[in-house]
């Protein structure tokens, strides 16, 4: 059984009397120890998808429909009280800005011990020892001293290491990381990503990595979801998606990267911009920006079709596959 299973997830934000749909029928699952990447541009709904797993969507947002099953528990039917036992304990989160997630007026030790004692019946001494072990795990120099320091005394990279240590405190089954290295420099990003991958492997923790950086996804994850305007438009093994993208949006996203172009040549740009949530075009949401769009794309929402290991929601790919199949039977 999959560790996490999300079916037909529908999230809305109410604004001025009417509800805006942020997520439309999201389906995906995650195995134990698997590393999954969610990519997309801002406004695609990738953070909302991650936050809704732990029901961390604040008013006016709400989960309007769907099932979220984690290790046999139906998370979306749980009370706030029950959810708090899962949050931080079984599922941990890492956010983008480590300065915003750490409490500036408490020492790091106090924050780590507080988290442990909230979930386990242990003494402060035991909790301190666990905190120390985790700091060692994330390779922080002189961990003993860090416990008595405040967040502002550390650099950005060091703070993100602390955050990872806190996420690992209660040996979770799943870590949800929302743009964990976006605020960091490249050399620090490489270190943090290497550390996170290594820890997920050795501790058998599943990782859900939300990022806009296709390079990072390609380095870290085994499976990738590509999101656009509140829907998943392509999903499959990361290598297949990077090397042979099927959906025109995924192709455009990869082609637009400077590292895909010949140095000095023009980049391949996708015309236009992501639509806003209250103004999503009918049919396939990508159709106004798509060079292959037909009349059908403006009418019908495409369903997933499988090609190789990937699933794509695109009328063009579907038509092409149908043609190939017809050709094969002849």
């Amino acid at each position: 059984m999959a560790l996490l299973d999300v079916r037909q997830l529908d999230v809305r934000f109410s604004s001025r009397g009417k509800a805006v749909q942020a997520l439309r029928g999201i389906d995906f699952s995650l195995e134990r120890g698997e590393r999954l990447g969610i990519v997309g541009e801002s406004g695609a709904g990738k953070s909302v998808a991650a936050f809704s797993i732990l029901n961390l969507i604040a008013h006016p947002g709400f989960i309007a429909g769907g099932e979220i099953t984690f290790d046999g528990h139906h998370l979306n039917r749980m009370s706030e009280r029950q959810l708090r036992k899962i949050r931080g304990d079984r599922i941990a989160m890492i956010f983008q800005d480590p300065m915003m997630t750490l409490n500036p007026v408490l020492t790091l030790g106090a924050q780590m011990i507080e988290c442990l004692k909230a979930h386990r019946r242990i003494s402060t001494r035991e909790a301190r020892q666990i905190a120390l072990d985790k700091l060692n795990l994330v390779q922080i120099p002189s961990p003993e001293r860090r416990l008595d320091q405040y967040p502002h005394e550390l650099s950005g990279g060091m703070r993100q290491r602390i955050i990872i240590a806190i996420a690992l405190l209660l040996d979770p089954d799943l870590i949800i990381a929302d743009e964990p290295t976006t605020a960091l420099d490249v050399t620090i990003q490489a270190e943090i990503m290497a550390l996170l991958t290594e820890l997920c492997d050795t501790q058998n923790v599943a990782l859900m990595l939300i990022t806009h950086d296709l390079g990072v996804v390609s380095q870290v994850t085994r499976r990738t979801l590509v999101m656009y305007a509140g829907r998943i438009i392509e999903q499959g093994p990361t290598r297949e998606i990077i090397n042979d993208p099927q959906h025109p949006y995924t192709q455009g996203l990869l082609d637009a990267l400077p590292q895909m172009a010949t140095p000095g040549e023009r980049l391949n740009q996708i015309p236009g911009a992501m639509p806003s949530l209250n103004n999503i075009p009918p049919g396939c949401a990508f159709n106004p920006r798509c060079t292959f769009a037909t009349e059908r794309c403006t009418r019908e929402v495409p369903h997933f079709v499988s090609t190789g290991g990937t699933q794509v929601a695109c009328h063009m790919v579907e038509a092409m596959l149908a043609k190939e199949k017809a050709h094969d039977t002849v």
Binding site: S155, G157, Q189, A190, E191, A194, G215, S218, L254, Q259
Partner: peptide, 24 residues
Amino acid sequence: QALLSAIPRLSDGHPTPIRLTGEV
């Protein structure tokens, strides 16, 4: 050299990044 090796590349089979120790 460290900076260039740290670029997250799309292609597989690239050398692992040179890990710098310490902080700026």
